[in-house]
Every structure is written in C-alpha cells, then in structure tokens.
Design a protein around this nucleic acid. Structure first.
Lengths: 220, 220
DNA sequence: AGTGGATGTGAACGCAGATTACATTTCGTG
DNA sequence: CACGAAATGTAATCTGCGTTCACATCCACT
C-alpha cells in the first residue's frame, strides 16, 4: 500500500523528471506559497505555479479542480500550522489560566507576523472556499475550544468574574486578536499611532491590555 | 457609426450622449459598485463596468490609470460614508463618554452590516491602494480621533481609569470592532458559536462587553 | 505482456487589464 | 467667431489568465 516511488519524492533538488512529476500536488502547493510570498496571495496564478514547477499549464488541474481549490488547500495547511502554533503557545503560558490565554494570543499574533503569507491566505475569504473545507473549519474550531476552555478555567479560579459568559469572552478575545492581526496586514496600524518598528509591541501590548481589563474584580 | 442617442443612463443631469459621456467617471463608479454588490468586489472588472455604462473597454482608462485606481476611488467614497456614519452615531450617544463610545462602535458595526459591499471595499487591502490615498487615510484618521477624544473624555470624568494610555485603549477598541466586522464578513462568526440570525446581537453584545470591562474601577 | 487508470502535454477558448493610434468633441484664447 | 489644443471615447491589439479537451505517456496490477 505504501507508494514507494523510485524517485526521491521530497526535494528541493529537482530530480530528472521524465514525464510524470513525482509529487506534483505537493510541488504546486510549495510553488503557490512561494508566489504568495513574492506578490501576495491574490496574485498567485495557476499558470505561473505550473511554470515554476516546470509543467504544462493544464497539469495542475489534474490535482485541483480550479484555482480556488489550490488556494484552499494552501489555506488548510496554513490553518493547520496556526492550530499547532496556538497549541504550542498555550503550553508556554505557565501559571494562571489568564497567563495561558495571554500566551495563546501572543502565539497567534506572533505567528501572523512571522508568517504573513500564511496568515493572508487563511484569512483571504475571497480566495478560498471556507465553507467547503472541513479541515479549515476544524482548525479554527480547535483554536476556539482552547480559548473557551482557558477562559472557563479562569472563571473557575476566580481570575475572571462569571458575570459574562465564556462564549462572549472568547468572542471578544478572538475579535481583538483577529482585528489586530488584520489591522497589521491591512496596513491600518500606522493610522492608529503605531510606528513602523513597534508593531509587535503594540499588538502584544493591546492584548495585554484586554487581559488586564478581564482580570479585574467584578463590579458589585 | 453613430451610436443610439438619448439612452437612459439613469443620471438626471446627463446630457444627450453622442460621443462623450456626460460624466463617465461618476457612471463608472456607480457601475463598479453595482457589480461589487452583485458578485463581490474582487470580481469587479473594468470591462464589465464599461459595458454596463455602454462605453468601449478602453474608455475607463481615461479616468482611472488602472483597475486598482477605480477600486481605490470606490473605497474613498465608502470611507467617507463610514466617516459620516460614525460622526452621526456618536451624536446619538447621549450621556456619558463611554455611552458615546458605545454609540460610535455600534454605528461602525451597523454600517458594516448594512453596507457589506462598501465595507468589503474599504477593507479589501489587496484591491485598493491605501498608501496612495490620502482621502482614505483621512477618513480612517478621523474615526481614530473621535475614538481617542471620547476615551480621553471618559478618563477625565473618571469613567475609565487613567492607568492605560488613551492610544492603547483606542487601539483596543478599534481592533475589537474591526475584528468583529471582519469576522462577520469573512464568515468566521458561525465557527465562534454565533447562530445565523444573531450576528448583530453578538457583535453589539461583544462591543458592550468590552465597554463594560473598560468601565470598571481601576485596580487599587 | 498487456491493459486501464492516473497523470502530463499542447492547443485551444473566452475573458481580463492595459496600451496605442486614431476619431470626435469641448473649450479657452485670440 | 475661429481655431487649435486638450480632453475624451473608439477599435484594434498585446499579454496573461483560468479552464477544457483530445491526445500522449507512464505506472500498477493481472
């Protein structure tokens, strides 16, 4: 059952392709990511990806029904990486639940800043088919679950008051972090008083501010 | 050779079009908006707009150097409307500064929901040239100023503690509201536990939550 | 060995953005 | 008012794109 190829399947080194490319699907995804990094996701073209891989313009359509499917597959990989990153980050938050939530948010923000192309792709609604991708929805879903679990724990420990529901607090957290990441990627931060070199600080600082507001004792 | 005269171009002050269209620039913008409402901003094509207006494919380029400039002009109009809407909304918030801030945020959110095409266009970074549009930056800038002024007033009246800077609080507010609007437009709300019919309630509710958190007395 | 399914080729088709040479109209200046 | 320059629209054309299709090639399996 194992597809043992006679050719080395992985590879930065382009092996001698006779007719069939060893793993065209993979190669196309990498080429598309490369193009996304060069010119932005909206200017990824199937033809150019094919050219980059050294294959005819029609070949990609054996693996993806259309351009959108290619971009969606790319987004699925990005979403998976984001999910893993968030999972890892939450482990770094030692101590209280709110500290873990902070770590989660920082992980999200840092990932979005360090991998702008990937972040652009996951959030490029008009380029991908979110509704048709269970994988992508699952990645988002897990981030949500982690957020809610952490907030529930914070409430249980009295770090956050229980006046407001977990779902509402989670939505607020997510909206803030998502909004920050998108503001950066949309170039809005400069208009909001954030200098060129201080974007990371501003973003994490804003996250910290939200968490500080959450931490306070309930109004009585 | 002579085109049909006296076509109804849906414009009141349009003179009889023989060769020169009365106000092609205006007409193109309206056609582009119409197309954006029909299929989304990313699928607006210059040619189709020209076709809709009844003009040759090259004509639009007399008024806009390229497609992006067309979309940017559209975004400038949308940004202006948003600016006006926010200005109006803030006047509706009677009472305390935080109530005015809430009104401001609600105005933003409602506008984004009621005019999804316009909102999509202002925030479609990859379709427009934000850096090259002073008008657009000014619209954003005014929203920011209103936000900061309101927050400063809230601090002066003791409604919000002065531990955190106005700029930080304003950025948090903006990130939250922008994040909410984008989540809705990107179809993420469903993944965050918001049912189909309750989007507006969830968005304004989240805004209210943020403001409730801000209102609390400072930690002492 | 041979065959069928998977995979890649190459040539289309239609549409898009953009440019150019040319036609027509408008307008300012004498 | 005349008239030429500037503005504006046309038609043809270039390039590139997504997508399809008939055909070629190769791999796995009997």
């Amino acid at each position: 059952m194992v597809k043992a190829k006679t050719e080395p399947p992985a590879g930065a080194s382009t092996s001698a392709r006779s007719y069939h490319h060893g793993n065209l699907r993979r190669a196309l995804l990498e080429a598309a990511l490369e193009l996304a990094q060069r010119h932005g996701p909206e200017r990824v073209s199937v033809r150019e990806a094919a050219r980059l891989v050294g294959v005819s313009p029609g070949a990609p359509f054996r693996h993806f029904p259309n351009r959108r499917a290619l971009m969606t597959a790319l987004a699925e990989e990005a979403g998976e990486r984001l999910r893993i990153e968030v999972r890892k980050s939450i482990g770094r938050g030692r101590g209280s639940p709110l500290q873990r939530l902070r770590a989660l948010g920082r992980g999200y923000l840092h990932w979005a800043m360090r991998h702008p192309s990937h972040f652009k792709i996951v959030s490029a609604r008009d380029q991908i088919d979110l509704d048709g991708s269970m994988a992508l929805r699952n990645s988002i879903g897990e981030v949500r679950e982690l957020t809610e679990q952490t907030l529930a724990e914070a409430q249980r420990q009295g770090e956050v008051d229980a006046v407001h529901g977990v779902a509402a607090l989670a939505l607020l957290s997510r909206a803030t972090v998502y909004g920050l990441a998108r503001m950066q990627h949309d170039g809005h931060l400069g208009q909001w008083g954030v200098g060129a070199g201080e974007e990371a600080a501003a973003m994490t600082g804003t996250l910290d501010l939200l968490i500080a507001l959450m931490r306070r004792a309930p109004v009585s």
